[in-house]
Design a binder for these strands. Structure first.
Lengths: 239, 239
DNA sequence: GATTCTATCTTGTATATACAGGTTGTCAAA
DNA sequence: TTTGACAACCTGTATATACAAGATAGAATC
């Protein structure tokens, strides 16, 4: 885990900021001090601080130093790929996952388009509802390339698929693209979720890529309107 | 604009990827070749390539090289702060901005909470509707600290406020936090937008910070359900 | 022919150094 | 007291170098 020095510094400080043991606005040690403390060079420290800055943990001011940002208010993912399990654990609510489907199915034209498949063939399909405080709020529909995910146990589907993919199958996940939009509810939504009388639903389409840039997973996450929230942290890039 | 070498490289290649003059999957010159071409060091090239990678333009593979990613499909902001003007220009649709309000008003408790103001005082308020293809789709409500934005011309409000703030007032914008949620429509929404019969509306709350970490702007962007889309690019951070 | 080894290319990590330029406090001069 | 010069410290940019480690093609070996 701590193979790289700059990763170790990043992990140390991101943990401290998240746990609140460093308070908002507090000044970090200077780059030279950190270099001394970790017995490394200033450039290595700078790499860690740059990552912390990119991910919204700290803020650097030229001539002054690095300062802790307010992450308390960022309740949801600061950015990046965060799983339902991680989020719900952070929220500390009573959550439950109901697996409706978990098997190998022939791919429809729609799914082939999403997974950029040219030829017909099977895909692994998982349909799950997420129950929060007794209400089924989110419908997750996952599709995997059978090349990478030949099968999936019910246990893995009930817990965290990501954990299984990364730790057991050792799949090198690299990046993902999210699309958020609002669409009309389908009969399936009404059947599998506790929708009340909402006519629309928030759809988050997630395209997950491996390090070799192959698209291997497509996820459709359908959230009930009133329970949906998404938080994004963005830095201004000067032109 | 080209003060920094790495920024020049970044701008060169991000432009080439966006314009499509570099096609998806194409290999970039190696870091050493680029260093030679720009008469600079490999570390400087690496800084530029890292930025391109962070922003979803390219993908680096250890031992192989850097490859152009598919940005065509990422129709909306790849990430970061993108203004309505920039987006609409890219879409090439007929768009129009209607300014409903543009003046200095006393702050309400709600606004003080959003702008983290402790004491009562005036704020600069701008309310605008965005018309796309003849329909008023988006309602933008902007609130600025009068310390930084004492007044705003009708012309600046009609065009791009960001352009005015950054280029005329020279305000050093650093980062922003976005919150996306869905809420019930208000009477004001019904009055100022072409809402049809939608009962809900997508609300994007935008908190904009300066480099000294002061929150100076709060924007509420209210989108009609059927026209809302948000795209996010995220890289996996290993722990 | 199939396999292994190796040379060489690539990117990733780490170090040392230099100078530019923003920030702050001190101390002397006006 | 106020002002200005300056030193000390901070981050930002750039360069040179070294070695680790993944990828690949071709030579050597079995």
């Amino acid at each position: 885990m701590n193979k790289n020095i700059y990763m170790q510094i990043y992990n140390d400080y991101s943990a401290q900021v998240q746990s609140g043991s460093l308070s908002t606005g507090q000044k970090l040690p200077s780059e030279n001090e950190l270099a001394g403390a970790y017995r490394t060079s200033r450039e290595t420290v700078r790499k860690a601080l740059h990552m912390l800055s990119e991910n919204g943990y700290i803020h650097k001011i030229k001539g002054k130093g690095s300062f802790v940002l307010d992450t308390q208010r960022m309740s949801f993912p600061v950015s990046g790929l965060v799983t339902f399990k991680e989020v719900s654990e952070r929220l500390g609510r009573s959550v439950r996952t109901i697996v409706y489907e978990n098997d190998c199915v022939p791919s429809t034209a729609e799914i082939r388009r999403c997974l950029q498949l040219k030829e017909p063939g099977p895909v692994w399909k998982v349909v799950r509802a997420r129950e929060i405080e007794g209400e089924k709020i989110i419908l997750d529909k996952d599709y995997f390339l059978t090349t990478y995910v030949p099968s999936l146990s019910l246990e893995a589907a009930t817990n965290s698929i990501y954990e299984y993919l990364e730790q057991k199958l050792n799949l090198p996940i690299s990046y993902a693209k999210k699309e958020i939009s609002v669409e009309e509810v389908t009969p399936e939504d009404k059947l599998l979720l506790d929708l009340h009388d909402y006519q629309h639903i928030v759809v988050v389409r997630n395209y997950v890529y491996l390090v070799d840039t192959t698209l291997f997973q497509y996820t459709e996450s359908r959230h009930r309107l009133d329970k949906f929230q998404f938080v994004d942290f963005a830095r201004r890039v000067k032109n």
